[in-house]
Structures are given as structure tokens and as C-alpha cells.
Write a protein that binds this DNA or RNA. Structure first.
Length: 910
RNA sequence: GGACGCUUAGCUCAGUUGGUUAGAGCACCUGCUUCACACGCAGGGGGUCACUGGUUCGAGUCCAGUAGCGUCCACCA
């Protein structure tokens, strides 16, 4: 066994072990009947993506789950991959083209796509390399891309199937049009932002009564040329007589617009009259439909005004047109006023520009299995952590709208629909769509494609990633499914993702799973995952979302270089409580690194303390324990080890990762290193006690490494081997992590029954040590100074001291501890183990000593009074449970005794 | 307009079913190169648990309301 170096070199160790894991295929998961399966699909990052702190958190958690599952003996699979990310990727490549002053149209569809693929080959998927640096134990041989041939086929299979079921249809409806990326978007891709602007009051003159006007308020005067009516509420008394009459359009091509009545109009807003522009507003469109009005579209797809806006506005960009329109209205006297106004405007999530409601032919999906998707979650087949997201999920499903799945992009899955050449696609009827001679829908297209033209649009990226858990396991190809282990691994166990994509992805995956996984089978067999863990969002120190544009996101690779992958992992998990957003603080990552260093040095201490023995199994270590030689500290540390093991089991059951990390941290650092290792130092001097003590250290270290391994895989693997805890040629994950009851069972079979009373006594000894150390510190004696201590103790107390004498001398830094009468004026402290004197080397400060004791007495008196008052309360005595009552009485007795003793000391000072 | 979350030490946050004097990390102060670790050890200071009421013998914890911050949903031009 190699000697453990003084400091832990993360970089070298991480590189070495990751290579070893890959070489031995440690992450490849096989179907092993009789063994429980555990599976996770990665939320596929964009192929353009680079690792962010969000990815670090998300993927660390997945890795923790998968590695823990392996240690529990499950066949654990983590499927990696990337998403083609339609708009994002196309934008990246178009940006490169722009440097050459070209657009995609200069290349044409085919050449442009070749360029995107070339880009993807060269630069795509960097993020998967970065995940390896983090230690992600994905089964890399199964890496998938949403545009892989097999995956694409699965996507098209779904389209054709849903089309044949009548769930996918083509329709001309209002869409969210992005003038930046020139495509339609789904409702989920639109962000509402409050925008400060102007509200224009415009008057429309009555045709049959010149000089009389109806006034409307609008934020968009440039759309007036697209007005086809003015609407009022049918019950509005002010306008009863106006309905049916006509007004002149105050801007753009001259026209007489009817005044109509519609209940959608809000009487309270402005004058109670609304201009109707069906081509550019959803509500207007609906009102227009109800009244048989023909929309007038005054905008081009790129957001400039077209000829229907009239010669003055035509060609202007929409916001320039707004200013111009206002000016024109002002000139003609139609503009009554401009008021400052703030309203909500929809923005394209990707392009960051205001979207335009626009009438366009698109492909739509009527979601399948909506009711089942609700039931799957509300009936608990799928559990959300934290649970509160179920409400958000159910609410969305309750108000679900058809999904616009077509995008006017080139990068993506091209919709598998072919039209007979020469057909005018703007004028296709229902009948045309149903006529196989005119429109063909299939995965591979018509056998002879001459005379057919394929649909230009591609599918929304989410319309491919919604089948991720299915297609990554080979669906729908039966051979591929058998090879991938679909039967064994589906449904997957847990999904780890952010709540921001609960609609985009989580809900849709559930519906897709229910529709396609195992038709006809019960819900629980069809769901894509059993648990969904929603992480928090990582924010910067100011609470802002981390983003590339703000430049407030640290580069995880820099952090890995600085603190090690393990340090980063430990740190990020420790600050990520369930479901709360996280404020990133680098010092927490640093403390992750410090923990690794502590672990490393504790292992080093073990190695330096004595020869290593058989540590290959829990049983082998227990064979070396000598329960008859156990002292209180031995009992206490194993008791705490068991409690921590139990805590961890619970944390994993409840997805409480940061609590898990904190539990091990506290146990290992405080209970083991600060106390047990320190008291070991005297035991190790004694030949009779040494071997038992080393065995206990091995037991604690081995179990701790196993518990920690999912969180910090590299250093634990390294120490596992350096300490010889597993056979050479095997990894730590080839060992099994025993849970608390298993550990207890092994102990019992070895005649070990933990004495919890002894463990509790250790708590009191720690308290006494702490008080005496404080006494030294306050008396100005260095902790390392070999002090002289005298204790006035009852026999029972002295017995406890005497039996721990060497240990106490070491822990207290005492040259001698003797029993005897107190020395007046020497610093003193009252403990559970008698009243102690620190014999000062030089004359102390009686005044300081006096005031110290007086302060303590005051605090005790207050506490005594409080407890007495509680016990004097009749209601408390009669209603509190006996255990609480007894605790209070015992406490009072102890406090009173201590109070009396401190009073005595004070009196002795005079 | 609706829903959800948050408010605890200087900072960032824990606090499971109500029960001794509310905890951690960092920061701060004091002492210490004690033979695993200065990425460390020992000790210390620091909080009216946002506010108001209620339930209870007992509330950081349960209930109602208020305020501030945040997130999501929603067609008021």
C-alpha cells in the first residue's frame, strides 16, 4: 500500500480514476434479472451548451443518485446525451455566417444544414466532456443526440401516429410570431414583461355624423390601418345608439368601420370602446371571428409594415412606424392625447424581442392523455419533490391549449408531410388534407417523390425531447428496445431537473410516456419516471439569475481547477436545500475542498497510527473488534456512526441532499476527528487497546467513505485503495454500502451491543473538557500549556475522572490532575465532574475571577428562576407529558446544585 | 388579478412530528507551527426567529391577517 501524501492533489487523482473507470466500463449498466434496476435519463443539454453552475448542481445530484444506487447493489443506468436545440443552434451558426456577411438563405437549406452538422461535429457536445471532469458516471456508450437517425425516426413515428389519430392538425390561427428569428413560438416560449410606453387616445369620426367621434385607447397606433371595426360592450348604455353605425379609419387606407357590440369589451377601460385589429391581437381576432370580419394584416414577417399599412408607413420597422403613426394622427387631429402607460408585452424568450400575434398556418397538437397525466401525479404514481410543484403542474394541465409544434427553421426534424407540387398551401381545405393524392403523411414520404414537395417547417425542439425517456431506450424499434433494456429500465426511477421546464418538458414527457410506452397497460407502467426532483435555481450573490450575458456565472472548470471536482460537488450540494433557490458563494466551495483535505488527513492519520489489517468487508473488521475492551468513547463513536448511517438513509428517501452532506460533515469532522481521533491518541499508546482502536477507526473510515462516495467520488476511490478497504482491481462501487440495520446486525452477530448510557456519559465528559478548556483560555493559559489541575469531586465523579485520566490529561493539556481541596483565589469552574481549580503559574487576577464567577452566577440564577416558574405553573404540571415534566425537574435540580457551588466559590473569594 | 415560495447571527442558510438556554458554514475577536490536517486546533462575541393577533401548560415550528422580496400563471386594449 502506498504511503498517503501530506496533501491531496485533486487534479492528478481525478484524471487517473476517471480513466480507470472508463477503461473498466464501470458505468455500463446491464440488464440483470433478479437485481433491482435504477435508471436516470439526463436532461439533455443543448448541443451548443457549455457547463454552467446549474448543470453542475443538476448533474452532481444525478451522479449522487446513480452512484448510491450502485453501492446499494442495483443495476444503475444513467443515459447521457444532447439536444439539437433548434433555434439556439441555428442562431449560433447563423451568427458565424454573418461574420462572412452571409445569411442562411445565401447558402440554401441543404448547404446550411451541412454547415450546422459540421459545426456540431467540431464543437458540439463540449459539455459532455466537461461532465466527465465533474465525475459524471454516465453510460457513455449510450450517448444519444436528438437528431441521431434512430432518434429522428422515433420523433417522426410519433408525428405520424398522432396525425393519424387526428391529434395533429394544420390550422391557420393566431400564433406568437418572433420577428427576430422569423418563426412561430409556443405559448411557453413567450415571456411577459412589463414595458413602459404610451397609451394613445384616438378619436374615430362617425361617417353619418361629421364632427361626432368615438374615442378609443391603444398602445399600438401603427396597427390602425389594420382596424376592421370598433367594438363596445352590448350593455353599455353610452353606446346603445351607436352600434351598427360606422366610423372612418383615422389612419391608412380609407375605410368605413362598423361599430359592433361584443361582451369581451371591458366597459371600464378608457371610453369603453375598443378598436378591432384581428390580424394583430388575439382578443381582436376572436371578436372578429364572431362577427365575420376579414382580418387585414399590415405587418411583414420581419416586423416591418407592409403595403396594407399605406404608403407612408409601408417599409418602416414597427416601432418607427408607431412614432410615425402617432405623428400622422396628431397632424390630422385624431390624436386626443398621449398618456404614459405600462403594460405587459410578450417577448420571445430566445431572441429577446417583442413577439407579434400573427395569423399563420401552423401545425398543432391536441395533447394526448391529459387526464391520465393529471392522475399519474395526483394519484402518486409520479412523485414530485418538493411536492408543491404538483399544483403548478396540475394547474397548467387544467388550462392546457393546443401546442404549436411547427417552427419556420431549418435545423430540426422536418415535418414528414408532402404536398402535391403546384398546390397552393395557403388555400388547402380540410378535404385536401384528407386526400392522399394531395397530401401525404408518412415517416419516409411517398415512394416516388417526384411531383411531391415536403413541408418546409421543422418540429419544435420540445416535440422531440418529450420522448427522451422512450427513445433513449430504443423505442419504437423492438430490437433496439431489447438491446437497450427497455423492459428492465423503463419507467426510469428519477428525473432531476429545474422547475423552469416543468411545462416545456416534464409535463409533456409524462403525456408522451402515457401515450406511447406500453399502450393498454396501467398508468404506473407507462409513466416515464417515478420521481421528479426539482432543483433550485442558482443565483449570484446579489440574487440575480446566472447568465452568460450578465457574466456573473463562474466557470465550473475554473472552480474544479481551484477546489477539485469533489470540492465543487461537495460545496454545491451543501448549499442546495430542497427546492430553494441558491445563492452561490464561492467560500462554500472552498469549504468543500477543506472537507476533502480533512478526510484525506484523517485517513493519513489512520495509516500512520498502525499497521493495516483485513478491511475487505464489514465482517472482517468486526472480527477485529474486542467489544469487552470498549470504553465509552468506542461506544459513542459507533453509536454516532449508526445514527449518521440512518440519517443518510432517510435523506436519500426524501431527496434531502444538503441535509445528507451536513450530517456526514458534522459526524466526521466533529465526532470523529475532533473527538474520537484525539482520544485515540492515548489509546494507541497502549498495546492492549491499540488494535481495537484501529479496528474502530477502520470501521468508521470505511463506512464513511462508502457514504461519501456518491458525493465525492474521486477522493473516496483513492483513499479506498490507499487504505486497502477493497480488493485490488475492484472499485469502491463494487463494494456494498450496508444500511444501519445491516451494520447493527453484523455487530450483534459479533456480540457487540452498543451501550448508549456510556455514549451519553461521553457527552458529559466532552462538556467538562470544554468548560476546562474555556477556563484555561479565559485565565490566559495557552491550550498547549501543561497546566496543573486540582479537582474537588465526589467519589463517583473522581472514579469517572480517574478511569479517563491519560485521555483527560491529553485533551486538557494538563501536566497533572489531582484530587484535593480547592485553592482560594485560583480560577475555578463547576462541572458535572466536580469543581475544578486551575493552579496558576503566576498570581492570577482575583478581581477578574470574581467578575467571571459573578456573571456565571447571574446567568444560572436567571435560568433557575425560569425553570422554577415553569414548574410552579399548575397547568404545566398537570398537562405536560411526564417525560417533559421529569426533564424539567431534573434540570432544575442540576441547576440549583451548580448555582450553590458557584455561590460557594464566590463567597470564598471574599 | 390568481397561485406558490421566502423573511432566523454581519453574510448565506439549516431547524423532521410544538417541549431544556435556537444551530451550521463563512466573516469577526483571543490564544496556539500540540508528533493527521494552519485547507488546521482550542476558546469567544454576536439573534425580541419580518410584524400583529389567535390556539396551547408551552410557538421559530400550528392558525388567521399585514408588510416586504421573489417566482410562476392570467387576452384588459
Amino acid at each position: 500500500m502506498a504511503e498517503i501524501n501530506k496533501s491531496y492533489e485533486a487534479g492528478e487523482v481525478e484524471k487517473r480514476w476517471y480513466a480507470a473507470w472508463l477503461e473498466k466500463n464501470a458505468f455500463s449498466a446491464r440488464v440483470e434479472l433478479g437485481r433491482e434496476s435504477y435508471s436516470i435519463v439526463i436532461p439533455p443539454p443543448n448541443v451548443t451548451g457549455v457547463l454552467t453552475m446549474g448543470h453542475v448542481l443538476n448533474n452532481t445530484l444525478q451522479d449522487i443518485l446513480v452512484r448510491r444506487a450502485r453501492l446499494e447493489g442495483k443495476s444503475a443506468l444513467w443515459i447521457p446525451g444532447t439536444d439539437h436545440a433548434g433555434i439556439a443552434t441555428q442562431t449560433v451558426v447563423e451568427r458565424e455566417l454573418r461574420k462572412e456577411k452571409k445569411t442562411r438563405h445565401d447558402l440554401g437549406r441543404e448547404k446550411f444544414l451541412a454547415k450546422v452538422w459540421a459545426w456540431r461535429e467540431e464543437k458540439g457536445g463540449i459539455i459532455l466532456e466537461q461532465l466527465r471532469r465533474l465525475g459524471a458516471s454516465c453510460d457513455w456508450d449510450r450517448t444519444q443526440f436528438t437528431m441521431d437517425p434512430a432518434y429522428s425516426r422515433a420523433v417522426l413515428t410519433v408525428f405520424v401516429d398522432l396525425y393519424r389519430k387526428g391529434r395533429i392538425y394544420r390550422g391557420k390561427r393566431m400564433v406568437n410570431w418572433c420577428p427576430g428569428s422569423l418563426t412561430a413560438l409556443s405559448d411557453e416560449e413567450v415571456d411577459m414583461r412589463p414595458v413602459k410606453g404610451l397609451l394613445y387616445r384616438v378619436r374615430y369620426e362617425l361617417v353619418d355624423e361629421p364632427g361626432a367621434y368615438i374615442e378609443v385607447k391603444t398602445t399600438r397606433p401603427e396597427t390602425i390601418p389594420g382596424d376592421v371595426a370598433v367594438a363596445v360592450h352590448p350593455d353599455d348604455p353610452r353606446y346603445q345608439a351607436w352600434v351598427g353605425r360606422k366610423v372612418r379609419r383615422p389612419l391608412g387606407p380609407a375605410a368605413d368601420l362598423p361599430i359592433i357590440a361584443d361582451a369581451a369589451v371591458d366597459r371600464e377601460f378608457g371610453s369603453g370602446a375598443l378598436k378591432i385589429t384581428p390580424a394583430h391581437d388575439r382578443v381582436d381576432f376572436e371578436i372578429g371571428q364572431r362577427h365575420g370580419l376579414v382580418p387585414v394584416d399590415v405587418l411583414n414577417p420581419d416586423g416591418t409594415m407592409n403595403d396594407f399599412a399605406g404608403p407612408v408607413l409601408a417599409g418602416l420597422e414597427r416601432f418607427a412606424a408607431r412614432k410615425k403613426a402617432a405623428q400622422l394622427l396628431k397632424d390630422s387631429g385624431a390624436l386626443v392625447a398621449e398618456e404614459a402607460y405600462e403594460n405587459n408585452v410578450g417577448y420571445s424568450e430566445r431572441a429577446g424581442v417583442p413577439i407579434e400575434p400573427r395569423l399563420a398556418w401552423q401545425w398543432w397538437l391536441r395533447y394526448p392523455r391529459v387526464d391520465e397525466a393529471k392522475a399519474a401525479v395526483s394519484e402518486g404514481h409520479i412523485r414530485f419533490f418538493p411536492e408543491r410543484w404538483t399544483k403548478v403542474y396540475l394547474h397548467w394541465l387544467d388550462h392546457i391549449q393546443d401546442w404549436c409544434i411547427s417552427r419556420q427553421l431549418w435545423w430540426g426534424h422536418r415535418i414528414p408531410v408532402w404536398y402535391r407540387a403546384g398546390l397552393d398551401r395557403e388555400k388547402l381545405t380540410e378535404a385536401d388534407l384528407g386526400d392522399p393524392e394531395k397530401v401525404h403523411v408518412s415517416i419516409d414520404g411517398p415512394r416516388d417523390k417526384t411531383g411531391w414537395v415536403q413541408e418546409d417547417d421543422v418540429l419544435d425542439t420540445w416535440a422531440s425531447s418529450w420522448i427522451w425517456p422512450l427513445a433513449t431506450l430504443g423505442w419504437p424499434d423492438e430490437l433496439a428496445m431489447a438491446r437497450a433494456g427497455f423492459e428492465y429500465f423503463y419507467p426510469t426511477t428519477t428525473l432531476v431537473t429545474g422547475p423552469d421546464i416543468i411545462f416545456f418538458w416534464v409535463a409533456r414527457m409524462i403525456m408522451a410516456g402515457l401515450e406511447f410506452a406500453r399502450p393498454g397497460e396501467p398508468l404506473m407502467n407507462c409513466i416515464p419516471f417515478k420521481n421528479v426532483y426539482f432543483t433550485g435555481i442558482i443565483r449570484d450573490a446579489q440574487g440575480r439569475k446566472m447568465s452568460k450575458s450578465l457574466g456573473n456565472s463562474p466557470d465550473p472548470l475554473d472552480l474544479i481547477a481551484k477546489y477539485g471536482a469533489d470540492g465543487l460537488r461537495f460545496g454545491i450540494v451543501s448549499i442546495a436545500p430542497q427546492g430553494q433557490d441558491i445563492r452561490f458563494q464561492e467560500d462554500r466551495i472552498e469549504s468543500g475542498k477543506n472537507f476533502c483535505n480533512k478526510l484525506w488527513n484523517a485517513a493519513r492519520f489512520r495509516q500512520m497510527s498502525g499497521p493495516m489489517a483485513d478491511n475487505a468487508t464489514l465482517v472482517a473488521i468486526y472480527d477485529r473488534l474486542r467489544p469487552q475492551d470498549f470504553d465509552g468513547d468506542d461506544h459513542a463513536i459507533l453509536d454516532r456512526l449508526l445514527a449518521t448511517t440512518r440519517d443518510l438513509d432517510r435523506c436519500f428517501a426524501d431527496f434531502e441532499f444538503s441535509a445528507a452532506v451536513q450530517a456526514i460533515y458534522g459526524f466526521f469532522w466533529n465526532d470523529f476527528c475532533d473527538w474520537y481521533v484525539e482520544v485515540s491518541k492515548t489509546k494507541l499508546q497502549s498495546p492492549a487497546l491499540r488494535d481495537n482502536c484501529l479496528a474502530i477507526q477502520d470501521l468508521v473510515l470505511r463506512q464513511t467513505l462508502l457514504m461519501l462516495h456518491p458525493f465525492i467520488p474521486f477522493i473516496t476511490e483513492e483513499l479506498w485503495h490507499l487504505l486497502g478497504y477493497g480488493p485490488a482491481g475492484q472499485f469502491i462501487e463494487d463494494a456494498r454500502l450496508s444500511n444501519a440495520s445491516q451494520v447493527t446486525a453484523v455487530g450483534t452477530s459479533h456480540g457487540l451491543v452498543l451501550n448508549t448510557d456510556a455514549a451519553a456519559e461521553v457527552g458529559r465528559v466532552k462538556q467538562t473538557v470544554s468548560l476546562l478548556r474555556a477556563l484555561k483560555a479565559e485565565s490566559g493559559e495557552a491550550a498547549s500549556k501543561q497546566s496543573v489541575l486540582v479537582v474537588e469531586a465526589a467519589d463517583r465523579q473522581w472514579d469517572a475522572i480517574e478511569s479517563n485520566l491519560p485521555m483527560l490529561k491529553r485533551m486538557l493539556g494538563a501536566a497533572g490532575i489531582t484530587r484535593g481541596p480547592l485553592t482560594p483565589h485560583a480560577p475555578a469552574v463547576v462541572t458535572a465532574h466536580g469543581t475544578w481549580n486551575l493552579i496558576p503559574q503566576q498570581r492570577g487576577d482575583p478581581a477578574a475571577e470574581k467578575s467571571r464567577l459573578a456573571r456565571e452566577l447571574e446567568a444560572l440564577a436567571k435560568h433557575v428562576a425560569g425553570t422554577q416558574a415553569r414548574l410552579a405553573n399548575e397547568a404545566f404540571v398537570s398537562k405536560a407529558p411526564p417525560a417533559v415534566l421529569e426533564g424539567a425537574r431534573k434540570q432544575l435540580a442540576e441547576l440549583q446544585a451548580k448555582h450553590a457551588e458557584v455561590s460557594r466559590l464566590l463567597a470564598a473569594l471574599g
